[in-house]
């Protein structure tokens, strides 16, 4: 699960825009498998944390209502070019992944 995150961050005029894509099935737990008639167990990202220089700039909590292979974008001020950004997600089965990227 090493490459489940793509992250791009760009600084312009003091404001850093972060865009991130994660690869995840985002199963709500409400769907039924058409072949077996059984419920597909819930498997979705519950928490996404984005850190800049060790301090959290954005923390998201999700339900299964976020689309498969989630995309997020947000902005913050205080970042400068070359700074490291770290994005981590954790899902409801305890799986997680993180990725660091430099602000461009």
């Amino acid at each position: 699960m090493a490459k489940s995150i793509k992250i791009r961050a760009k600084e312009k005029g003091g404001v850093t825009t972060v865009k991130a894509l994660m690869t995840h099935p985002m199963e709500t737990g409400g769907r039924t498998d058409k072949k077996t008639g059984k419920k597909i167990p819930a498997h979705f990202i519950q928490e996404v944390v984005c850190k800049h220089k060790g301090s959290t700039v954005m923390m998201a909590e999700w339900s299964g209502g976020v689309s498969k292979n989630p995309y997020i974008s947000f902005k913050f001020s205080g970042g400068t070019k070359g700074d490291e950004l770290e994005l981590t997600w954790t899902d409801n089965t305890g799986g997680s992944d993180s990725m660091t990227s430099a602000i461009k």
Binding site: V57, M58, A60, E61, W62, G65, V66, F74, F76
Partner: peptide
């Protein structure tokens, strides 16, 4: 979804 924004966000 709920996004908790940090001080600079």
């Amino acid at each position: 979804a709920n996004f908790v924004m940090g001080p600079g966000a």
